[in-house]
């Protein structure tokens, strides 16, 4: 599917259930039009990775994902030779009268090449979305390697030669800013910062993802989350937590928040014991801000 107009991008994001502001749609649209990678930064759980998924859905393109981690290297990101197979193949050919050159060209052929995500993305004939997730976890060396691929769209494998991209994939990079990314990488990308959602956006997401949720409950959940994020927490909950919580409370058939329900389900929202203790201590106060008065107080 082609997305040639900004409005098409907006409506297609909407259709895939991704609720967002204009600026996000604009960045997605421009990154496709300008053929530039989109670098998305923001706190955990605000839907950075989701953008790539939605993009692939609405473009009807294949999503190829490269999860970065400490010590990620070429053999896990680009290619690796299948050594077991190569050895076996050599053994099998031992008796044959093939020349050494023939044997060599045989074992270094496509057949023995294990394609990792980056090579895979480049070799696709059809449109592809390449998601390079948490790029800040990989080290600087890998980042500069990535730069080369993202600007040239080719990969060189010493034994085979240079492989050029058939179609240029749409690239989405995400980062949690654990490590400052290099200026060079930033310059090559369009940059998008996604923050925690505001009230309107968050409630829209809840209603969309948890259809049939009680209106009042949705409002209270959103208010509660907005307040919780203002607190000093070790791990601030993102939209993912909001949705899990909303689903859980909806499954309990609640029509509004009450203190005991919040206490029982707080583990869905907060994932750190100190945070939970801290929040439980000031729960009455917090709920008051949300407009819930506990039965004991009344």
């Amino acid at each position: 599917m082609q997305l040639n107009e900004l409005s098409q991008v907006e409506s297609s994001l909407q259709r895939c259930g991704y609720i967002t502001e204009r600026k996000t749609a604009m960045s997605v649209y421009l990154s496709m039009q300008l053929n530039k990678p989109l670098l998305i930064e923001g706190p955990a759980g605000v839907g950075k990775t989701e953008i790539a998924k939605v993009m692939s859905q609405s473009l009807d393109a294949r999503l190829i994902r490269l999860q970065c981690y400490e010590g990620l290297d070429v053999s896990h990101a680009i290619y690796e030779w299948n050594y077991q197979r190569q050895l076996l193949h050599l053994k099998m050919e031992e008796g044959s009268d093939k020349s050494i050159e023939e044997r060599e060209s045989n074992i270094f052929s496509d057949h023995f090449l294990l394609k990792r995500p980056l090579l895979e993305a480049i070799l696709q004939e059809r449109p592809t979305v390449l998601l390079i997730d948490e790029v800040d976890r990989a080290d600087e060396a890998f980042e500069s390697f990535l730069l080369e691929i993202l600007s040239e769209w080719q990969i060189s494998i010493p034994e085979i030669g240079t492989i050029k991209a058939n179609t240029i994939p749409s690239v989405v990079l995400t980062s949690n800013s654990i490590r400052e990314l290099s200026e060079a990488l930033r310059r090559r990308c369009l940059y998008l910062w996604i923050d925690y959602p505001d009230f309107e956006k968050e409630i829209a997401i809840i209603k969309r993802k948890v259809p049939g949720i009680n209106e009042k409950l949705a409002q209270q959940i959103t208010l509660f989350m907005q307040e919780v994020r203002k607190m000093k927490l070790e791990k601030i909950p993102g939209i993912a937590e909001t949705m899990d919580w909303a689903r859980a409370l909806a499954a309990l058939h609640l029509s509004c928040l009450d203190k005991s329900a919040v206490e029982d389900t707080l583990g869905i929202v907060l994932k750190d014991w100190q945070d939970i203790r801290h929040t439980t201590d000031s729960l009455s106060e917090l709920l008051e801000k949300v407009g819930v008065t506990s039965k004991l107080d009344t």
């Binding site: 600026k23 421009l30 930033r186 940059y191 998008l192």
Partner: peptide, 13 residues
């Protein structure tokens, strides 16, 4: 919005 999508390259910007 158009300029903001293309010119800033980090959160501070």
């Amino acid at each position: 919005i158009v300029l903001k999508s293309t010119l800033p390259k980090n959160q501070k910007q």
